[in-house]
Design a protein around this nucleic acid. Structure first.
Length: 420
RNA sequence: GUGGGUGUAGCUCAGCUGGUAGAGCGCCAGGUUGUGAUCCUGGAUGUCGCGGGUUCAAGUCCCGUCACUCACCCCA
């Protein structure tokens, strides 16, 4: 078994817990399907360029967290570290913008990042993605943000918060950036933080270390330096969110690690998790399409972490996806009864009843134990003695009550007993 | 990449200053030659993470290594 373990930073999702994983994933995506978003499936790996140009060379994700490899044809490929860039690549490649806009799409799947694992942070994780492409309308920003909030509410989550801000656009952000760099250079920062300030000065604002935060009290903020049009856009987004009944927390120091974000930017944080508290995040990315060689089209979207959302669901003690799978269980004694059991289970399943039976050599006691564990409410017991009389026993596991049923009536009787 | 904590049965863990490995739960079987969830009895499973060192003797002490875990960084 040496080495035959899940790779570092990955984990298996096993029954019965896997039922909760499915419930989270399906609840989050059901919300998008109902909102008129179309499903899109893109490969789990792309040409490396899609991410280096899309996500941005200077980001941590691209510079040190990608699983990049060369295939046998000499191509450089990368396991996707997030879904948006690949979805945008597909959007451009198939000219989906040559139709009615916006194009609203969703997807769900694996993403990969080479990071040091930690609570809620893994090298393989699952994201639900939602994107609305081709129209720059604040109402669309609000719709996307609201869909995210509603997805979490659908699961019953309450202990989470929406952090919201605007990162400006191509005209006002460079000006602000200069202002911020000027401010940061006067501070007493360690070497690594200085380097970070050069690559992406905004990120220094988000530093959690108290000795850094203490120096940032009167640092200039992007929201105070938005251009008129960007400010108007942000005001409109907030107005629409209010109309949609969504509440949020202004987070002027919120920074996201992907280069493509502009204007509206947001993060969903849950308070029951550890340091990795972001269960989802997103924003507008008006420069992404052009960066990938497509037309100059805008976009807004979010990514929600299914694994982290599951942790949040568990942190709140929510009871989802735990319903028993089996309704009827058949316990045969002897070879002849075995044939009847297999036949009956097949018949019940054909009719939509969740049915199961025992396999392997087990005594009656062991078989009943298996029946109990299956969660079945009704158990059919049939042995040689019954067969000789042409009957079987039907037991209600909740009450312990047992009735004798003629073999001929067995299927309809069980069918009726387990309900619709 | 940096720092802290932890590795003993399938799971949760005990094992004092070194003396040759245990409990609870779970699993299997019997009690009941045809009845689960309760009760009683019995049973199986460990390269004590791995490698080296000290010692008559190492789960226990020392060194290294790997894994897990938490935090920084980053982010879903």
């Amino acid at each position: 078994m040496a080495g035959m373990t899940a790779p570092k930073g990955t984990f298996d999702i096993l029954p019965p817990d896997s039922a909760r994983f499915l419930a989270v994933r399906d609840t989050l995506t059901a919300r998008l399907r109902r909102a008129g978003y179309g499903y899109i499936e893109a490969p789990a790996f792309e040409n490396t360029e899609v991410f280096s140009r899309g996500v941005g060379e200077s980001t941590d994700v691209v510079s040190k967290e990608m699983y990049t490899f060369t295939d046998r044809g000499g191509r450089s490929l990368t396991l996707r570290p997030e879904l948006t860039a690949g979805l945008m690549r597909a959007f451009i490649e198939h000219r989906l913008y040559d139709g009615a806009l916006p194009v609203k799409i969703w997807s769900v799947g694996s993403a990969f990042r080479y990071e040091r694992p930690q609570a809620g942070r893994y090298r393989h994780f699952t994201q639900v993605d939602c994107e609305a492409l081709g129209v720059d309308d604040p109402a669309l920003d609000a719709e996307v943000v609201a869909l995210g909030v509603q997805g979490f509410r659908d699961l019953g989550l309450t202990d989470f918060e929406l952090l919201l801000t605007s990162l400006g656009d191509a005209t006002c952000r460079p000006q602000y950036r200069e202002l911020l760099v000027g401010y940061l250079t006067k501070l007493d920062l360690d070497e690594e933080t200085r380097r970070r300030a050069e690559i992406n000065p905004l990120r220094v604002l988000d530093d959690k270390r108290p000795e850094v935060q203490a120096q940032l009290d009167d640092a200039p903020l992007m929201v105070d330096h938005l251009s008129d049009s960007t400010k108007a856009h942000y005001d409109a987004v907030r107005q629409h969110l209010t109309d949609l009944g969504v509440t949020w927390t202004e987070a002027p120091r919120l920074v996201r690690g992907l280069d493509y974000y502009t204007k509206t930017t947001f993060e969903f944080v849950h308070h029951g998790l550890g340091a990795q508290s972001a269960i989802g995040g997103g924003g507008r990315y008006d420069g992404l399409s052009a960066a990938l060689g497509g037309p100059d089209l805008s976009g807004i979207g979010y990514a929600v972490g299914v694994d982290r959302t599951l942790l949040a669901v568990q942190a709140e003690g929510l009871d989802i996806g735990t319903a028993s799978a089996v309704q009827a269980f058949v316990v045969p004694l002897g070879a002849e009864a075995k044939r009847l059991a297999v036949r009956l289970v097949g018949q019940l399943r054909e009719d939509g009843v969740a049915a199961d039976t025992v396999y392997g050599d087990r005594g009656l006691k062991g078989a009943m134990k298996a029946a109990d564990r299956s969660g079945a409410t009704h158990v059919v017991i049939v042995g040689d003695r019954d067969l000789a009389e042409g009957v079987a026993q039907l037991k209600d596991m909740r009450t312990g009550e047992q009735t004798t049923v003629p073999i001929g009536d067995l299927f309809p009787t069980v069918r009726a007993a387990v309900g619709p």
